[in-house]
């Protein structure tokens, strides 16, 4: 596969360099909202949507920044765009799916500080992706994030039924699960080489 072909970019972001399990981005919702499958999947989809919107905006903003030679403002400009995109998703959800809005709770506005999204915008800038590559990259990252958080939620639903020592309950156990998931995702590295 060509390293800059669209299908490679998609698979790379979704599997080989999965944003959560290989690049450690977006761990907060990955650990925080992965208790139940029915909240994990919508969270993944909401994050994917914000990723897509902010990736498009970041692409346009970067063009403007480069045009006027003010790249040092990049970080501030990106974060402002992401915050607005999250606000948009929040308002849409509140209007059309109020039940879901309540169950995601504080984690919805916190998508703003989800490093997966800022990371995506920064990576696509560093890699000099063009418009279509950026879109595909965002879709792949979103798919990878949703996959990871859904897998994690499925595993944790099963774990709720098992008896674990007191000190291992909660975060320690979730992280160990994350480690095992990450280990199995390393198998995908053979698809086309890491990075």
């Amino acid at each position: 596969m060509q390293p800059d072909s669209l299908i490679f970019i998609f698979l790379n972001a979704a599997l080989m360099n999965n944003f959560v399990l290989a690049l450690f981005l977006g761990l907060c919702p990955f650990l925080g909202v992965s208790g139940k499958l029915e909240t994990a999947v919508p969270m993944g989809l909401a994050t994917s949507f914000v990723m897509l919107v902010s990736s498009l905006c970041a692409y346009v903003i970067n063009l403007i920044l480069v045009r006027y030679d003010i790249e040092f403002l990049r970080l501030i400009a990106y974060i402002a765009v992401i915050a607005s995109a999250v606000q948009l998703v929040e308002m849409t959800m509140k209007k059309y799916t109020p039940g879901l809005f309540r169950s995601l709770g504080i984690f919805l506005p916190l998508i703003t500080t989800n490093c997966a999204i800022l990371g995506l915008a920064l990576f696509q800038t560093f890699k000099h992706y063009d418009f279509f590559q950026s879109v595909v990259y965002a879709l792949g990252a979103g798919a990878g994030f949703t996959l990871a958080i859904a897998l994690m939620a499925g595993l944790r639903e099963k774990l709720d039924l098992s008896d674990v020592p007191g000190i291992a309950k909660g975060a320690a156990l979730s992280l160990m699960l994350g480690g095992l998931l990450s280990l199995s995702f390393m198998g995908f590295a053979g698809l086309g080489g890491a990075h």
Binding site: L21, F24, A171, A172, L173, L175, M176, G178, S182, M186
Partner: peptide
């Protein structure tokens, strides 16, 4: 990457 998860889990 897996080592990061596992070591942090053990630290916790």
């Amino acid at each position: 990457p897996p080592g990061g998860f596992i070591v942090l889990s053990l630290m916790l």
